[in-house]
Design a protein around this nucleic acid. Structure first.
Lengths: 234, 234
DNA sequence: AATTATAATTATACCGTTATAATTTGTCAA
DNA sequence: TTGACAAATTATAACGGTATAATTATAATT
């Protein structure tokens, strides 16, 4: 791992271990340079990373302070690791409804930027939290990129497999959210009643090369899903 | 304005003017250095800023490419400028329901990190898009920081006033979203029916010094509100 | 034509320096 | 005690350099 990432992790760990609270001050740059035996710019990079993650904030002329004050149980929408990470303290289970290779619809082909005769994996899953339905997820993977999937992989973390198993690098994602009312099918799968609220999200995931490889539609159980978004001024 | 910000703006403008599409390549670093007469690190900083904004992405060994492929009409949740910016092509109007100085409830005091005997401005507004209700917003401002508000300011952009009028610097925000069903009061204000879906968000806005100055609760009209979230790998 | 090895391109990591701007602290006067 | 001013502290801006790693292009080999 890179030096500045390591340092960022160590600083994050330091905050955890010492239970530093919102607003508490971290050592100044010069001290961090000595502490971690790195140049100024490397420390600055580590701190910038932590700031991007929403863990600290920096004030010119004053210092670097702890930001994080998470409410637990919220799904963070900033990084795109799936919610395994946010909800890791909870019991998340998965039921696979469908897994097969198909030809994409026009919508899927457009979002994955492929031709309609190219193969895609279609994966439909229901996710549970503490046995309650959390969401229904319908995903399409470009088979040229995600060359192989099986039920076992799909029951566990697909993203973990994509990164570790296939050695692909996930780069960024575009997510579009909207609200509406559940239809019969959705209500049945979520164990809710048609006409009740739904939150649905379409997300396109890109490799770090910029190629889209996953187009997903998720319908959330409005009783379970809570989101957390950290904003910054730019 | 800072040099790297200026360059970032110029590059963004360049993308707009030349209608560069998703995936198109920008000039390489060295060329940008010459073009904008800046050092490598300054260009890198400008590009990092644009990457943070979701306008470009960079691929090591390959180049810098255009990312943005916005669907129009979505409210971006990444930066915290309010939605004036995202929906500026639309006609947004505001109706002020209440504006007064009050003592905070326990919840408000906690979120603004103040004592319960300190004053806060209470602002309640309904926002319309094309004459349709977009959301009901109930905000509390720490009066020690936001020392003065009047109906005119509150009808226009409060954030613009805070930054330009009061010279305060907005730093970051924490937003917590969840879904539910509208109660009678909310339904009445939004022109909807009780029991219909709602999306509600609590947001705490901080100055760049880290002090919270605004605690807002927004209830969105599920028919109008659509959100856009750009994720990155960290 | 396909594969493999090599070279060129290109962004990123990491180092270090000087200057600058925001904030905080200290000092002195009223 | 308050206010104004000066000094110290601290992060940030901007410069520039070398080394490295990922990608792409080219050449060599089969």
């Amino acid at each position: 791992m890179l030096k500045y990432q390591q340092i960022a992790n160590q600083i994050e760990q330091f905050i955890e271990e010492n239970q530093l609270q919102q607003g508490e001050k971290l050592p100044i740059l010069e001290n961090l340079m000595n502490q971690y035996n790195a140049s100024k710019s490397t420390i600055v990079k580590a701190l910038d990373l932590l700031e991007k993650k929403g863990i600290i904030f920096q004030v010119r002329g004053s210092g670097t302070f702890v930001r994080r004050k998470d409410r637990k149980g919220y799904i963070s929408l900033l990084s795109n690791q799936g919610f395994k990470k946010d909800l890791d303290q909870f019991e998340i289970t998965t039921k696979v409804m469908d897994l097969q290779v198909v030809k994409p619809t026009k919508e899927v082909a457009e979002n994955l930027n492929i031709l309609s005769d190219q193969d895609v994996y279609h994966v439909k899953r229901i996710r549970y939290i503490h046995g309650q339905t959390l969401c229904v997820e319908e995903s399409y993977y470009n088979k040229e990129i995600v060359t192989y999937l099986n039920k076992e992989i799909v029951t566990e973390s697909i993203f973990h497999y994509i990164q570790e198993g296939l050695g692909l690098k996930v780069g960024f994602s575009d997510m579009y959210m909207q609200m509406g009312k559940l239809n019969d099918e959705e209500a049945r799968l979520l164990g809710l009643i048609a006409g009740e609220p739904k939150m649905s999200a379409e997300t396109i995931f890109f490799l770090s090369s910029g190629k889209p490889f996953d187009f997903s539609k998720i319908t959330y159980n409005y009783q379970q899903a809570q989101f957390f978004i950290q904003g910054t001024n730019m």
